[in-house]
Nucleic acid binder design. Structure first.
Lengths: 130, 130
DNA sequence: ATTGACGTTGACGTAAACGTCAAGTTATTG
DNA sequence: CAATAACTTGACGTTTACGTCAACGTCAAT
């Protein structure tokens, strides 16, 4: 009835975070594993959540923002205004990401230029970016 | 002989940061304005540096990393190994940015999908992302 | 029964990037 | 000359995202 489960250190190893980190995410309301006595037991759902948390972090979301998205997503199935709010937040974040992406493009262009100049200053080397 | 200069609050206003922030950057060795008595005087070069700091921050560099780049760039004109090191760091950062950019693309794709689903769940609305 | 691996809670520490006073200096302007 | 504005240093506070350590529980293997 319960399918695959994981221990805290299994997840920690798989995703290359410490157990402290995983417990901290639970403190922040991002994970709610079941218990076997004292010990935490993580289901596939918890594992997916952890993946989402880490991906969220990689794109610059704070843990609080991630939590808000989780809460909204959990509540969204029932309530129409919730769904609308969810869409609104996603749109906003999509726009922020787009701006960030533009920033990155600009800087990468500049880096290429500077590098070309450096390599020219050193003479000899090819100029085009690998 | 000195061209245009700026006060701390002029720069703060122009770039929408606090004076505290600008002084903090100086503490961290990122800016070295001249003084008129006690007061800081910022040249065009300082202004450019501040721009670079803020842009660096936008793409996710720490102040420490920004400082290292400044130091390298300042020293690079003379020394060939320094130039090579500079190129190495820039390449590494370029790669990091590329990965971050890929992450962002993935998440934006997922956001589009989730949003479509939400809108489908609400019925009626158009499905394609603006 | 003890050792070792793994897990638990709780409290305190830390680094980055500033914010927030406090208390004083300098310049200018009415 | 006194008030006001703009600036200074210095010290302490704050938030986020964990790290570190202590002290203890639990279970399997020796």
């Amino acid at each position: 009835m319960q399918g695959v489960t994981y221990s805290i250190s299994q997840l920690a190893q798989e995703f290359d975070v410490t157990t402290r980190t995983i417990r901290f995410y639970e403190d922040q309301g991002l994970l709610e594993p079941q218990r076997d006595g004292q010990r935490r037991i993580y289901t596939r759902r918890d594992r997916v959540r952890l993946m989402l948390i880490l991906r969220g972090k990689r794109i610059g979301l704070s843990l609080l923002e991630i939590r808000e998205l989780f809460d909204l997503y959990d509540a969204a199935s029932n309530d129409e205004p919730q769904l609308r709010e969810f869409i609104r937040i996603l749109s906003r974040k999509e726009q922020q990401l787009q701006e960030q992406l533009d920033d990155i493009r600009v800087v990468m262009g500049e880096i290429s230029q500077i590098r070309s100049q450096c390599e020219k200053a050193l003479g000899k080397q090819a100029a085009s970016t690998p």
